[in-house]
Design a protein around this nucleic acid. Sequence first.
DNA 1: TAGATACTTCAACGAACGTTGAAGATATGT
DNA 2: ACATATCTTCAACGTTCGTTGAAGTATCTA
Lengths: 213, 213
Amino acid sequence: MARPRRTTKEKLLDAAEKLFARKGYHGTSLRTITRAAGVDLALVNYHFGGKQPLFEAVLERRGALLNEERLRRLAEVRRAAAPAPASTEAVVGAFFDPILDFLEHADRGWHSYFSLLAEVNNSPEWGKRMMGKTFNATVKQFIEALMQSLPQAAPQDVYWGYNFLTGALTLSLAETGRLDVLSAGLCRSADVAALRARLGPFVAAGLRGLARR
Amino acid sequence: MARPRRTTKEKLLDAAEKLFARKGYHGTSLRTITRAAGVDLALVNYHFGGKQPLFEAVLERRGALLNEERLRRLAEVRRAAAPAPASTEAVVGAFFDPILDFLEHADRGWHSYFSLLAEVNNSPEWGKRMMGKTFNATVKQFIEALMQSLPQAAPQDVYWGYNFLTGALTLSLAETGRLDVLSAGLCRSADVAALRARLGPFVAAGLRGLARR
DNA sequence: TAGATACTTCAACGAACGTTGAAGATATGT
DNA sequence: ACATATCTTCAACGTTCGTTGAAGTATCTA
């Protein structure tokens, strides 16, 4: 069979993903990345054109896959419920489940990617521009679906609700280990099954609570 | 009256707070900070002993005030409900309201501080150690109060619920401006009154949803 | 196989970084 | 006013940073 050998580009993306997730954009040097990837320093500029383009490429690589899978599931739950609108629980599930599935079944890189995404999402420096470029189109469709599932809610409530929803999600993906410390080991932040069992119910109940406010 | 002139230490803390919030620890240089503060570069090392001690001093200055006010309000809602345990809504309010009040009525520095806190809370580099040092003792009391307000909930549910709660809160404080973009201006992330009206109901409903899961 | 294209290596650039120590200025206490 | 403690200035240290261009090697095309 064909050798599935990683290209230089992939090696760089993998190493950058892991290291950016740990120390952020400014806390990670190209020398650290290229050393971890086992390639020459100058190759970053050859393949990506600089540090920032590399950072954006890291965010967009898996972002595109995530968007695809989310929209696929959104269409699925909508079709299943038609002609009625999909329920809040189903829409929320279509938003969360791809992430949880990637974390449970796919390669370790997704952990770094989501941890990085959590930091980017909460950063004034990157939050608006980078998250928007990759995710706005998809997110707008989910917000629309949430509005249809909660016809009695004001649009402002749904926008704020999405903000809370994504905040709860991203902190859960940040891999800070804080939950483990606070609960003295009773909960483990890497326990995807425990997160899956609780995030959906929490958020769906929260959105309904907002709607009947 | 006595001159309320800011000391060099305060000037440094104020400037560092604002700039760390915008670009993070590694993205902000001491030269940028001292230039903004209008003091000499070497004074950081004289007054704080280095860059990292300055960063920790920034986090702890307002953290201590926040802890004080949160515990004061927690005691208040507990006394008001005694001998019954305080309600989930009241405990959640005691946790959120000090922040919202500081944002609405106090100086602009709190905005930077909370924005910085949001980034720190979601960062693997600082999240566990720095948040823990300043907030763990207080947070544990709130988690205990939440457990008492939700006797039917498993402890794990409350720990995870606290995780979602603080995630929703911190993203709302992060000042990324993303909510404004997504809602095309319909919602403004700096609108504290809008946040106050929605965060409590969302979180309280979410916690109850978790408890009856 | 010859030539062109794609990729990699190597050495170095100027700029910015955190930190330091000695000298100078200011405030304090007697 | 003088001695002392506190604070500030200044110039420089050694590192590390992102980026670059020229030279070398591998890969592909005809």
